[in-house]
Simulated scan of single mutants.
Amino acid sequence: MEIRWLEDFIALARTRHFSRAADEQNVTQPTFSRRIKLLEEEMGATLVNRQTLPLSLTPAGEEFLRLCEQVTERVRLTRERLHRLVEEQAQRVLLAAPQSLLSYLLPDWLATYDLQELVVPYLRATSWLLPDYFQALERGECDLALCYWPVERCELELDTSAFHYQVIGKELLVPVSVADDSGRPRFVLPGSRRSPLPLMAYHPRGLLNAAITAHLARQPDATHFNVVNESIQTTNVKELIGLGYGVGWLPQRVAQKALDDGRLVRAGEVRWNVPLEIRLYRHRNRQHSGLEALWERLAQFEVPLASVSPSPGDPS
């Protein structure tokens, strides 16, 4: 039994005429009559009194009509709800971001712009390297990519000409270490040839590693490290630093609470901090109404709302 058969029966009950009901339902009269007959066979009862003029419904037909009206109304309401859900899904924007931005920036940023219902984090992206985000934008796997970007000159070997971006904030990578018994950093930059510092490093092909390397190359003092671990995730770097295994750079947002309560301390002067932008990228040719509305809303804000600044206790 099909829903349209129930709609046929409702039309017949309303018009009391096979030909007019068939016209309303946009089918030929023989096809319409055959459907009504199939309904009667399915229900095991005569539903239409064909001997009256205009025709009438039998008592079984009157009962069946009430069922048809209930079922078709529920289907109509459900269809409307599903349509609204599809529209809402089409409006949503899928955003890819590294784990540190997903945890320490995105919730507050979404709340600031009231975007919680519009933007959906793409959790598969938390362990991607920078090129992965742009490839995902290229193939439409996500709508937006939120990523760190070096402020200083840094060779990334990445073509971004097919993408638009907005700067939504600033960040600092700060070198940190656990403290010794006197409260000073156990590991202090820049290290020496004789005593290289154990380094909790980032993935050698990652943006954070490139930004740190480029920044250190511009310093007058050479740094000396023994790389003991490499990781994509800042949380992994933070955990190993916190266990006392060495020194490393963390986004200030990630490190701030541990710095405030003394679990970590700065491992060098301010000049060792690496400035970063936080950029939101989209593909030039990727368009839908939700993405366009979000992009236009963000463009209205000239000053990035998401930023960090040196805390009062920063070494100088």
Rank of each mutant, 00 (worst) to 15 (best):
L65T: 03
V93S: 14
L53I: 15
P54A: 07
L102F: 15
C154Y: 10
T58N: 10
L129R: 03
L129H: 12
Q89E: 14
D114R: 14
D143F: 02
P131G: 07
A125R: 01
N49F: 03
V71S: 00
W149H: 07
E62M: 08
L94H: 09
A111V: 03
T58V: 11
T52C: 09
L101V: 07
T58F: 04
Q99Y: 13
L95G: 05
E40W: 08
R76Q: 11
P59A: 15
T52A: 14
L110E: 13
E63R: 07
V120W: 05
L67S: 10
L38M: 06
H83W: 05
W149N: 01
R84G: 12
L118P: 03
T112N: 12
C147A: 13
L115G: 06
W109F: 14
D114S: 15
E62R: 15
W109H: 02
E138A: 11
L101K: 11
L101Q: 12
I36E: 06
C147M: 08
I36T: 04
L55E: 08
E117V: 11
T112I: 09
V71W: 02
C142R: 05
W128H: 02
L146A: 09
L137T: 13
R50W: 06
T112P: 06
L85I: 14
L85M: 13
L82V: 03
S127C: 09
L39I: 07
S100V: 14
C154M: 11
E40G: 06
Q51S: 13
Y104N: 12
R35E: 02
R92F: 10
R84E: 14
R79S: 02
R74L: 12
Q116A: 11
P107G: 15
E73H: 07
L144N: 03
L77Y: 04
L38E: 03
P131S: 12
L57T: 06
S100F: 12
E73D: 10
L85D: 12
A145Q: 05
R124D: 04
Q91H: 12
P98C: 09
L146W: 09
Q91K: 08
L85V: 02
L105S: 14
V71N: 02
G61F: 04
E41P: 05
